[in-house]
């Protein structure tokens, strides 16, 4: 029985409302959380603006517009249900997609990415809450495989220069393919090295993490377990062979790791429910990421690692239960 039908028949004018308890609500909502994440993305966006200037604005804006339009059209005309584009989730997908592509990506490719993200990644499963894979990452990986050249040619973020025609490699491809010119760690942290739009500055992304933890949008379990795993895993190699390829700090601060750990892996829908599950999920994302980075064909593996673990999330949810009351040992 649809509630819309019901409310037509039963007007609530001057009638007492009766419902089961509780009778108060925290006021939390989906859109509050989504806009909260968007606020947390602001520092990274500002860095992107500073580094890539107008390009960053155009790519981000276009990506958001595409995502919102695709979601609206698919919901309204194909799924025939009330579009919920203003809950902020489509905007978030748009921003995250933009943050995962080079700043000079042609707009038409971006549009294809947005369609893959929203159409395949989200709406084909039934919309927000029902998707198995992170929509923005679906879009990103779709583009990475379909347009490898455009997706891995980054403009040199020569801050202040008038031209951005020169392209350069990312830190990780320096490592992978042993090209000369590896930048210093400070530059990597502050985000003045090559890479996708949003993955420039680890510091800006960490600011976002602190904001989200403070606002209780996410818990620490996923980002910290990913980062810790990456540091420990590469650290073990670094102890034996101290070469830049194994430097845990470079691995932590470069590429999409921060963006992935803080904003992509923590996506509510596609990550586990329980804390235990989150730690398992984070651990494996870290392991897979490092494995791809060290031994895989791609220089970067965060997106693949997250998507892979997204697929395992239902299984993790099935096998992990929260710590129940009464299971704690008596210590009184």
């Amino acid at each position: 029985m649809s509630s819309a039908l019901r409310s037509q028949q039963v007007s609530m004018e001057n009638k007492l409302v009766v419902s089961p308890s509780p009778h108060v609500h925290s006021g939390d909502s989906i859109s509050k959380n989504m806009y909260g994440v968007l606020i947390a993305l602001l520092p990274a966006f500002l860095v992107a603006l500073y580094v890539f200037r107008l390009d960053a604005l155009i790519i981000t804006f276009a990506s958001v517009v595409f995502c919102v339009i695709f979601e609206y059209v698919i919901a309204k005309f194909i799924m025939k249900k009330q579009p919920t584009v203003f809950d902020g989730s489509a905007i978030l997908t748009g921003v995250l997609l933009a943050f995962n592509v080079p700043s000079n990506l042609p707009i038409w490719i971006l549009a294809i990415g947005a369609l893959a993200a929203i159409g395949i990644g989200k709406m084909s499963f039934g919309g927000l809450g029902n998707n198995i894979f992170n929509p923005a990452l679906v879009g990103r990986v779709f583009l990475l495989i379909s347009f490898p050249a455009q997706m891995t040619t980054w403009p040199t973020p020569d801050v202040g220069a008038t031209t951005d025609a020169v392209t350069s490699a990312t830190v990780l491809s320096h490592l992978k393919f042993n090209t000369p010119g590896l930048p210093s760690l400070t530059n990597i942290l502050m985000g003045t090295e090559g890479g996708s739009l949003g993955e420039m500055s680890a510091v800006a992304l960490l600011l976002g993490l602190i904001y989200m933890l403070w606002k209780k949008i996410i818990t620490w379990h996923i980002p910290i377990s990913i980062m810790a795993t990456v540091v420990i895993f590469t650290g073990i190699f670094y102890l034996f062979t101290p070469i830049p390829q194994y430097n845990p700090l470079i691995h932590l601060a470069s590429g999409g790791l921060m963006l992935g750990a803080v904003f992509m892996a923590t996506d509510y829908v596609t990550s586990p429910l329980t804390k235990k599950g989150m730690l398992i999920y984070g651990f494996f994302i870290g392991v897979v990421t490092v494995a791809i980075r060290l031994w895989g064909a791609y220089p970067e593996g965060v997106s693949f690692a997250i998507l892979l673990m997204n697929g395992f999330t239902p299984l993790i949810n099935y096998y992990t239960t929260p710590k129940r009351f009464g299971e704690v040992k008596k210590n009184g």
Binding site: S3, V17, H25, S29, I30, G126, L128, V269, L273
Partner: peptide
């Protein structure tokens, strides 16, 4: 009145 229910976003 309660707000209309949406799909679970599995935020945990």
């Amino acid at each position: 009145k309660r707000k209309a229910m949406k799909d679970c976003i599995r935020c945990g």
